[in-house]
């Protein structure tokens, strides 16, 4: 806790004008980012300052989040923008493709054999001729 008024950051009055819900939402968002705590607090402070400085003073949650997103975008940290055309995170190794094809299963060779046995000799000869 600061011991006297001189220790207060200069932006505090502006930030204090923000709706607490808006402020907490910005803080929650930066805490949900995968970045260091120092950086997240710095970003939150900058975004709330931005939002507080907007005309009208008490910015809405949407406006505060827009400010935060702009700042994140400038620093290349916006998860949405980063992935609009950004790099993939690969969860798999490089492909090493090959084919895997199912072989045919002759499920009833007995039936086929019996069919062959009882086939008319002419039909068998014709079939043999076709295969030649």
């Amino acid at each position: 806790m600061p011991e006297n008024a001189d220790d207060q950051p200069t932006a505090a009055p502006a930030v204090a004008r923000l709706d607490p819900l808006t402020r907490d939402r910005v803080l929650l968002y930066v805490r949900g980012l995968d970045i260091s705590p120092e950086l997240s607090l710095e970003l939150a402070l900058e975004a709330t300052r931005h939002a507080a400085a907007r005309p009208g003073g008490a910015a809405s949650a949407a406006a505060a989040m827009d400010s935060l997103r702009e700042i994140l975008g400038e620093r290349g940290l916006d998860p949405g923008r980063k992935n609009a055309g950004g790099p993939y995170l690969s969860s798999t190794p490089g492909l090493k493709r090959c084919s895997m094809v199912a072989g045919e299963l002759d499920l009833s060779p007995l039936r086929r054999l019996l069919k062959g046995l009882f086939r008319r000799p002419g039909a068998a000869r014709a079939a043999a001729g076709r295969s030649r």
């Binding site: 949900g32 980012l33 995968d34 998860p79 980063k82 992935n83 993939y88 995170l89 969860s91």
Partner: peptide, 17 residues
């Protein structure tokens, strides 16, 4: 949909662009 870290991870893993 909500948590930035999880959202970023899912987006980064997505291959349908």
């Amino acid at each position: 949909a909500v948590i930035p870290r999880v959202f970023a991870l899912h987006q980064a893993l997505a291959f349908n662009r």
